[in-house]
Design a protein around this nucleic acid. Structure first.
Lengths: 190, 190
DNA sequence: GTCTATAAAATGATAGAC
DNA sequence: GTCTATCATTTTATAGAC
């Protein structure tokens, strides 16, 4: 089952999920937003949960691939971290609504998709951790608690979509540049 | 309607909401976790949505009060920002599960509670913005995009609860200290 | 590909016995 | 304060006509 109608359904579902959350959007709501009846949706998709897993796993795989490239590049720690920020900013700009489900509704995935997602997420965080640990070892970054650094930066990057969509007037490249300064060098004047 | 049974219901609801989200927790689930039947809950509470608004508004008011104190204090920008971080860390440690609903389920509030919440949130963000703007003006913090600084820091602080509960071995004071360094001075070695 | 009709299950909430 | 029984509504999903 593929086709542009399905893409339309996925895009609309992603938008509605990002506004109200997976469980608060009924198949009737989704159908109405598309101008059809709920039963008609099932000509294009198998189930509601298929919508969620398609949306979530697709972005998760994009992050996984991006991170694998970064990890295998032979650059300095700061360059690796900047590449991670670029990756998040890029996906935020391109797939803003999908990120909502990734961040907030992943726990409604069913097995085996849930395990697949959790594996990818663990792997991503582990790679991020490795970058930070090596940076500390090479004295390229401050000797601070690894978990605090990891989750503080990751929280900012993961939440980017929730305010970027509302705030106009900042380009992708400018956002990237600003995020790099704020996340890597802080905001206090030296 | 008050009493310790109600407090018990609220605490259990907060925990379940933090695991699965408001809409995925049924009154039957909640009752079962308390060892009673769903109908019995209604002897202590009026409705499911009352649970959500009690949880969310209580923490939101705590943030509002804390921020009002910080804003009216006559300290330097860096001290004000450190006080904001302390406020978030303190509430994270004390009310970890409540913060989940505040961050993820506030949109399921009904009027007039929804407007009340949104007003408090806007007010909080405006006060935070004022601190940053004055800091830039006084050259106490870097001249970066205010919105990027605001939402980057706020995202980290708001997400703190999602990993703090899982990671043991770091005290409240140590977490506060580390967060201040990461959020204010960055992680790159000078 | 969309519709109407409907099944089967789950949901928030109430009534009334004990 | 908790229970059983039940209601009204909403939910995901299917069957079959057009």
């Amino acid at each position: 089952m593929k086709g542009e109608r399905k893409e339309e359904i996925l895009a609309t579902a992603s938008m509605l999920f990002s506004e109200r959350g997976y469980n608060a959007v009924s198949m009737r709501d989704l159908a109405e937003a598309l101008g059809i009846k709920a039963a008609s949706l099932y000509n294009h998709i198998d189930s509601k949960k298929e919508l969620l897993s398609t949306i979530v796993l697709s972005v998760a795989e994009e992050f996984t691939e991006g991170m694998n490239e970064i990890i295998s590049s032979k650059t300095r720690t700061e360059e690796k971290l900047k590449a991670v920020i670029d990756l998040h900013v890029k996906i935020t700009v391109e797939k803003s609504t999908d990120l909502y489900s990734l961040n907030n509704d992943w726990m409604h995935l069913k097995e085996p998709e849930l395990s697949y997602f959790l594996d990818m997420r663990s792997c991503y965080e582990d790679n991020f951790r490795k970058i930070l640990k090596q940076g500390v070892k090479l004295k390229e970054i401050e000797k601070l608690n690894i978990e605090v650094m990891l989750f503080s930066i990751l929280s900012s990057l993961r939440r980017l979509n929730q305010w970027y969509s509302k705030k106009k007037g900042i380009s992708e490249s400018e956002l990237s540049k600003q995020m790099k300064h704020v996340l890597l060098k802080g905001i206090i004047q030296n």
